[in-house]
Design a protein around this nucleic acid. Structure first.
Lengths: 329, 329
DNA sequence: ATGAAAGCGCTAACAT
DNA sequence: ATGTTAGCGCTTTCAT
């Protein structure tokens, strides 16, 4: 538990100057003989270079920030893991922040990360005005939300939703409902648009009456489905804007004794593990969550390495996974 | 995107010395008048104190490390969230590391965190020898594994397992199997012991022949259950050492057309969200994952505040959640 | 109440 | 090939 050795201690023990030690640390020219002595000294002192001090002079901390809404939400662990793997490979650390879909918290953590002088930032919070993000003194990559002039990586939510609805149509559904996400979420809005577009394409705008807004949580899917079932002519196909709400809808269906997919075909969005555990297994539009995180971090590192090309918008494909809850034929 | 203002810039603009600025920053004695001028200067320069520089002189970084096996494993997000909440409340940041149950990675990240001069560490990796952890120059709190002389917080795995088995007995099971976790996991070993103990208590050691070892993953639970079903006299009750393996077992049971809980009663361990999505819903022993993380972090902060009392072992209770997969009467 | 100056542990010119 | 030195941005005595 003694104070950690400094570069000075190493220098003294090895009988050289601190700059020589710094050189062996950072790969400068050093005679093999001194290098050996320095390394020996480092070992006996169990020396660890101080990243704070390095950061202060080099003006980089080798830390990036990651702001997400909530790591306990099943969509984000894979995102975080993707970011961490990309960072770890480059000797970067990741500072994790849970902002709870709360603008004040997003702001709070942003400030903290500024004070920490993180070298860059992956931001997956939906609330904070993008203009404040654009003014940050470090590169930022957005996840799941675009903004003119900033780097973004996101899933093609519009197309994913379109695929889901087309699939329901192909299964013979004639009244297709949508349990939408909160209007404040950019990706929820895209999914809603994709739903509307797909129906318009086959001349069925009248189904739009079956739109219910939820908040991405299981309970809201349950309630929305209850509402839909109480209609005079209930839908026979339901596209939920995320899996959690789809699971809630499934529960409502089950309680009402409605056969799935027989009477109502159901599909979700995200591709979380839960979808494989339900019976029937839940069809879903799989988001490449890990890739989302990894690509975002990799784009960030390209910026950190000096790439000054115009802002990129990386659009990752969503993939339809047809399982039991929507398969009728 | 201009370089961030320093304390010097603030001092100059406010017409005072840097030490005065530092005083208003840290609550020293300053005349109301100068304080106002300094604050104004900070605001116009959008000044953010540099935590690196502060850390270098104060010898603390306000960062703690968190080493876990894998954030995408459904048990850990809640743990991480607990740690983060406790840390955030004290203005600390959390550096997240995924060590993948891999000793080399645990070692690697440990080194990284040392270099980062984190003020302390919550360690949930199962592999690394505890003696190296005990020698760290900063306080460490272990999760889910105890070690003589170190702070630990963990779930009462032994008692949780005992509860699970007693419950199966009470449901009339006469041949109770255990799908164990890997022997390398301390908590898996405790659960196995709890299973054995409970059976011994009612004189049924003979059931021990029904022990199958898995690796905590879904697939291994599936395979273990297959093996058990192939037996001449298969078990009529199964306690899986975690929920993921229980889900796998459930799948095997379903494929074999075995009624659950009618012919085989099943119970898992952990209390992950998946257990509510299966049909039948999976009974389980709920671990207080969030609390595990929160308490670990809080114990760590007590140490950081100078508490030098003897090492603590915090044992959190596991709670039996009886759902459909094991309820027979 | 305020300022001057030393130093936290390191890197990066600049010398030699 | 190696050493000397001036900072990086801050806190903290010690003066005044």
């Amino acid at each position: 538990m003694l104070p950690m050795a400094t570069i000075r201690d190493v220098a003294k023990l090895a009988g050289v100057s601190v700059s020589t030690v710094s050189r062996v640390l950072n790969g400068g020219v050093v005679s093999p003989d001194t290098e050996a002595r320095v390394n020996a000294a480092m070992k006996t002192l169990n020396y660890r270079p101080n990243r704070l001090a390095q950061g202060l002079v080099r003006q980089k901390t080798m830390i990036i920030g990651l702001i997400i809404p909530d790591i306990t939400n099943p969509f984000f662990p894979a995102v975080a893991r993707g970011v961490e793997d990309a960072a770890g490979a480059r000797e970067y650390g990741v500072l994790l922040c849970n902002a709870d879909w709360d603008e004040a918290k997003e702001r709070f953590y942003l400030r903290r990360l500024e004070e920490q002088r993180v070298d860059g930032l992956v931001f997956a919070g939906p609330k904070l005005s993008t203009s404040v993000l654009a003014e940050l003194p470090v590169p930022v990559v957005l996840i799941d939300r675009s903004y003119e002039g900033m780097d973004t990586v996101w899933t093609d939510n519009f197309d994913g939703a379109r695929q889901a609805v087309s699939h329901l149509v192909s299964q013979g559904c004639s009244r297709i409902a949508h349990i939408a996400g909160p209007d404040s979420s950019p990706s929820a809005r895209e999914r809603l648009k994709g739903y509307q577009h797909a129906l318009r394409e086959c001349g069925r705008e009248e189904d739009w009456v079956y739109i219910q807004e939820g908040d991405f949580r299981e309970q809201s899917g349950y309630r929305a489905m209850k509402t839909l079932l109480a209609l005079r002519r209930p839908p026979d196909g339901v596209f939920a804007a995320n899996d959690l709400m789809a699971v809630g809808a499934l529960r409502a269906l089950e309680e009402a004794g409605v056969r799935v997919p027989g009477e109502v075909a159901l599909i979700g969005f995200d591709g979380i593990a839960l979808t494989e555990a339900t019976r029937p297994r839940l069809s879903t539009v799989v988001q490449p969550a890990y890739e989302l995180g990894r690509r975002a971090a990799e784009l960030l590192f390209r910026r950190l390495e000096g790439d000054a090309s115009p802002p990129e918008e990386v659009l990752l494909a969503a993939e339809l996974a047809v399982r039991e809850s929507s398969r009728r034929r």
